[in-house]
Design a binder for these strands. Sequence first.
DNA 1: CGTGCTCTTGAAAACCCTCAAGGGAAGTGG
DNA 2: CCACTTCCCTTGAGGGTTTTCAAGAGCACG
Lengths: 247, 247
Amino acid sequence: MTLPIQIEHSNCGECPIRHRAVCAHCERDELEALEEIKYYRSFEAGQTIIWSGDQMNFVGSVVSGIASLTQTMEDGRTQMVGLLLPSDFVGRPGRETAAYDVIATTDIVMCCFRKKPFEELMARTPHIAHRLLQMTLDELDAAREWMLVLGRKTAREKIASLLSIIARRDATLTRGRSSGPIVFDLPLTREAMADYLGLTLETVSRQMSALKKDGIIQLEGKRHVTIPDMGRLMEEAGDDTDGGFLV
Amino acid sequence: MTLPIQIEHSNCGECPIRHRAVCAHCERDELEALEEIKYYRSFEAGQTIIWSGDQMNFVGSVVSGIASLTQTMEDGRTQMVGLLLPSDFVGRPGRETAAYDVIATTDIVMCCFRKKPFEELMARTPHIAHRLLQMTLDELDAAREWMLVLGRKTAREKIASLLSIIARRDATLTRGRSSGPIVFDLPLTREAMADYLGLTLETVSRQMSALKKDGIIQLEGKRHVTIPDMGRLMEEAGDDTDGGFLV
DNA sequence: CGTGCTCTTGAAAACCCTCAAGGGAAGTGG
DNA sequence: CCACTTCCCTTGAGGGTTTTCAAGAGCACG
């Protein structure tokens, strides 16, 4: 049941998210201060990391794996409001309780900081505060982009939008190449996709099949996706591509 | 056509948004620095304040009136991604071009700062940076709350959600009372409501009529709304109220 | 009194959801 | 090794909500 997950990166200098996380702009001495209050935690896929309404005793960064921020109504309707990827920040300085459920989508490793010390450190470390502002503004943009998807796009466009976001992220992480087919594994179940897109899982499944039938995507198994032509996918997503090269 | 709108608040100390805007936590000397780079601009209802893709030469705060942040697809589908109320901040330090259209919903007065000097000032004024982080986090929460509305609520629940947000804001601004009926004027056309809610204007109109027929709201004319029972409205919105007193 | 704008209402159609059944792969225990 | 279960996914049929298309009402303005 409980796998002993190895924590390898005790040293910030060797951390895989060193240059993208909230600590990205930190100097050596600032990193050392962070190291003193940090600790790692691992969660298995499916585990709830934070319950909405709970006391938040820590903030932190996703080191590896994927988590989701979700909101649930009384009758069970669920909406994912954020996808947390490696380097993304979890928690809100200055707030006591969590506003959303944070759920591990895959096995995940987090770099956590006790909240109080982190807030104190942030107050005297402009590099951290500034980076957090940057990241928050980016998340706000992503949330607003997603509002267009949720409010105005068709089911087919929604699926294409999600796939192109994941494809783009994968392309950034794995290599800079933009030519040739893009290949990746979907980190989400059909149900998670549905919760992200404001659809039912049946509609997700149907639209995935339709995109496959039309040659926009290729599927091996349920999760392994190949995108032969990124431009076509973006057309299906309804985004202005106008070439779309260089992503 | 062009009304000569009076700019009254040249002095920050008397500014109506003094304690809620990005300058809220500023000391006297910080305010003086802001005063040196600030200027007021007025826009009439319907005017576009900023075009998506344009160079951003200023950032600023809404002093009075309402503006909307909207995103438009090539085929004309429009989604409002933010509602800018007095004290809300416009613009993103560190970015060159605007990501969204900013449109004056009502006549509006803005307190603007030239972008470059503001960024420099922010770099050496933690009070401003900290306040901006707070405000950005609040906006992120609002955006995420709205994602649930867009993704998972029915047309009727969407309308009720919008009305309760406006009602709550009005209640906060005009007085602390929470008992008795709430009365306000809708600052949005049916079309603007539709763009906010991801609906068509016909559906908005129909659901407004339905809520009226069911006694959830009362309408005088098209814009003047009375809410006899805030609890009932929030039930219709699908929000957990559990009493809901104290707003 | 016509024009323009916002809003309302109706009828038909489209899209997505709900309900239902079943397939395929992985894991468990006999 | 093979039933059996479970989980995830696919596909079909029917129905409901919202959209689309269309017409007209109410109001302000010139």
